[in-house]
Design a protein around this nucleic acid. Structure first.
Lengths: 209, 209
DNA sequence: GCATGTCGATAGGATAACTATCGACAGTCG
DNA sequence: CGACTGTCGATAGTTATCCTATCGACATGC
């Protein structure tokens, strides 16, 4: 198909498609003439994946490129693409304090988690502990084990969706999409559950307006 | 204290402090002379809260202003500040399809959740379902109930941290901080749990590197 | 009395993600 | 044959966000 059709079917302007190609996010189509290029269905799929990562997942162009490269790297195990995807999601800008990191790792160890010290989640979680401390609120500590337990369930659900065998490219794509979009899914469901529980706590018998 | 001390203790440049004041995020200090203004500890606390919301929570200046205004609004129930905070976090840019919304609401109802149709989480979660469908992956559906269950536990932990009584301003601040920073905390713990579970699945006996 | 700190105001800069425009020309329709 | 539409790569411009730098005037402390 030509660029105009690709644009229409993907909902991405042809200017943006050219931009993505320039930036190395989308492989170039096959030139079929002086000013004509042919795109395939795989371009369409890649474009949709790209938009999902950028719009729904909140990845920047640069980070999306890293993730896509990991999916395309045939020598990279699917397990490692998950790590790449984790690292691509907005991480902590400033590293957390050693104390909070130690506290988080201690809690994780108490739950039997084996976590690599370089896991980006550690700084993310420990950074939040730091913020709480800075704000003079220590009340989070008591609830942490409950968070660990709940997130373990989430991760279990994540893995149940991710096939670690079969077609490598498809599995890698699923792993990446699940990791990146999962944050948003969980955030959305959390909002809903928060509202349910807090309104129920206030008014155990009432109805939704 | 003067602006230079406030700057030093908060780690925010005096130029930025002035910027926040200009933008209505930080109340002005008390003028004590032609070119001198006095700031209090409450300014320091507010500044730290602001940085936590912006840096750790990823809120924009404009959204942070809305949230802070809700905290300061003495006539607003604490329960409602939670809704304001939910709405302030990066929401869905494009609304989800009615089909996905219906599916999400159906699942929520099946779990006994009472969720207001305007809850921003619905579009967030339903939007992810849309993306999955767009990418030709329907495999998420089977795992959704597990996500609901896990997020309900998270929300329960959220509420256990949030005092709905006592000093209103402090409770509202706690509710807001918990809602906004909670997403990041959960995301971090999820990364850790993912790594633990996936590495355990691959190598049930091995050690961390 | 002079270096230093501070004031509000405004202009400027950095980054990210596009978007608009350009001249040239190929394919298409009648 | 010729008007018209679609497309090409390249580059400059735009929008939005979040600050940062500088300015002249003036107060304060040593």
């Amino acid at each position: 198909m030509r660029i105009s059709e690709l644009s229409e079917r993907s909902g991405v302007s042809s200017a943006s498609i050219k931009y993505y190609t320039r930036e190395g996010l989308l492989p170039a189509g096959e030139r079929t003439g002086y000013n004509q290029t042919d795109y395939t269905d795989s371009h369409l799929g890649r474009l949709r994946l790209l938009r999902a990562l950028i719009e729904a997942g909140g990845l920047t162009i640069a980070r999306a490129r890293t993730v896509l490269a990991a999916i395309d790297d045939e020598s990279m195990p699917v397990y490692d693409t998950l790590g790449v995807a984790q690292g691509a999601i907005e991480g902590a800008d400033t590293p957390a304090s050693p104390e909070s990191r130690a506290r988080v790792l201690e809690l994780a160890a108490a739950r039997g988690w084996r976590v690599h010290p370089g896991n980006p989640g550690i700084d993310l979680a420990a950074g939040i502990l730091d913020r709480y401390a800075e704000l003079g609120r220590e009340d989070l500590a008591a609830a942490l084990p409950a968070y660990l337990e709940a997130t373990e369930r989430i991760a279990a659900a994540d893995l149940s969706v991710t096939p670690m065998s079969g077609d490598r490219a498809a599995a890698a794509e699923t792993a990446v999409v699940g990791t990146v979009l999962g944050d948003t899914l969980v955030a959305g469901l959390r909002r809903m559950a928060q509202q349910h529980l807090s309104s129920t706590a206030l008014d155990p018998t009432g109805d939704v307006c």
